[in-house]
Design a protein around this nucleic acid. Sequence first.
DNA 1: AGTTTATGTCAGCCTTGTTGACTTTCCAAG
DNA 2: CTTGGAAAGTCAACAAGGCTGACATAAACT
Lengths: 175, 175
Amino acid sequence: MAERAPQTSMGRSETLLFLTDEQLRRGIEAMFFAYRGFTADPDKILQEYGYGRAHHRAIHFINRAPGTTVNNLLSILGVTKQSLNRVLRTLVDDGLVESRVGTRDKRERHLYLTEAGADLERQLSEAQRNRMRAAFRNAGPEAVAGFRAVLEEMMDADMRRHYLDGGDGSGGGAP
Amino acid sequence: MAERAPQTSMGRSETLLFLTDEQLRRGIEAMFFAYRGFTADPDKILQEYGYGRAHHRAIHFINRAPGTTVNNLLSILGVTKQSLNRVLRTLVDDGLVESRVGTRDKRERHLYLTEAGADLERQLSEAQRNRMRAAFRNAGPEAVAGFRAVLEEMMDADMRRHYLDGGDGSGGGAP
DNA sequence: AGTTTATGTCAGCCTTGTTGACTTTCCAAG
DNA sequence: CTTGGAAAGTCAACAAGGCTGACATAAACT
């Protein structure tokens, strides 16, 4: 393959097979187009409720770690408290999220999905899972491992932390 | 909660190794966190120029296919012409993009980066390539293939078209 | 008692998306 | 040649969701 030496923006020390600028550009565009597909289905559902992606993100991470605090959510989402608060307020007002004052530390608010909130969460995540399941299945298990490996490398280091300690719902040792 | 068997939202016909809801959730969060990392470096550069991601996207695809028309760009970016036009106007006013009236069809405007525009493009894509190169290298060539395979499956079908016919700069067969 | 921390809130600004209405240019079919 | 419609541009208005800054309150820490 590749008559004419493939261009890389580094020296010729790179493994020539996959680090050409052209390959990297393909990766960049893959991220762009795939992320659009990734958010398309939930976006449609959210629109019916008058919500946006910001609401989805909050709902997702509250569901993942019930009882999480506002501050913790803030550090995961990487937005200002004013931004998050606006979203959170509408979710609480609409009865999708419950905000309980902490028992150990009464300054903290612990966030939980209500039944209605959990319903919406299921609807959203199911749509998103359906697309991802199809993509995973069509690409195969080895591709999935590679997908995850590359994405993990692409994260900022401090976000990798949030990503890695998922799994159990111990979102801050709620009492 | 739920120390029962691993849940999948489909039947038990799935290959249990990688299509559990938990695995899918990890994939979803990987996309979220990785996309943030993916855009973080260009965002910093853009801020210095008073531009946003919309400008980056326009610059990227004009660079990829010099001479592309506004309409073509519209279908790639998936926004309204009013939205794109606002961005394009600032780029033209600032001398980063040149808009040439079409010769064959004078209604069309063909878009090109100026020297200054190409400079900014290089700066932006270099930052983004650096991160992707590091991720690709750390993950290894097989992971890269998997990454691309999954992302391609995740795109909407009509976007896959735009993704696949990249490479040559024949953005509409300009004369 | 004084400071720090966690949260909430008000006000205002920016980018980037949206819809709707209208104009100009100009190709192409009748 | 006339006219229908496509491509592009423009103006106006609006919304989501980022941001900053300032300020309030309660609770915890020192």
